[in-house]
Amino acid sequence: MSTIDDIQNEIIEEFEFFDQWMDKYEYIIDLGKKLAPLNDQFKHDDNLIPGCQSRVWLHAEMENDQVKFTADSDAVITKGIIALLIRVLSNQTAEQISRSELYFIDRIGLKEHLSPTRSNGLVSMVIKIKAIADNLKRYH
């Protein structure tokens, strides 16, 4: 079972292959297109993440002590970014998610290459994921 940091390191390594930003985006778009679909019943306002220019829904479920995230967005780049977050944080315990430090965002240059609106969107996604984990930690 890979830890959150194992996966972060994997992603950092993958992004090292690209020297052009457009190639990184091509990869993010590809991840977005491949993200497992979110059931329509979960695309409700409670699952909407505020602060993003596009709409992003995030749904969390518990499965054997682990939190399972699924998500969708109407913008494919946003979807690719959330796919990365899900890859890092899904199928971990609430405790691990809550304690995690997401250094991969800076290391792959995502933060600096996303405009303030978009960057806020990314920040909002992380805040939402952590809030869900904190909440689950309290009740499980």
Partner: peptide, 12 residues
């Protein structure tokens, strides 16, 4: 496609 995606790629 979403306008946000087009704008992001144009910005790049």
């Amino acid at each position: 496609s979403h306008p946000f995606d087009v704008g992001t790629l144009l910005d790049q």
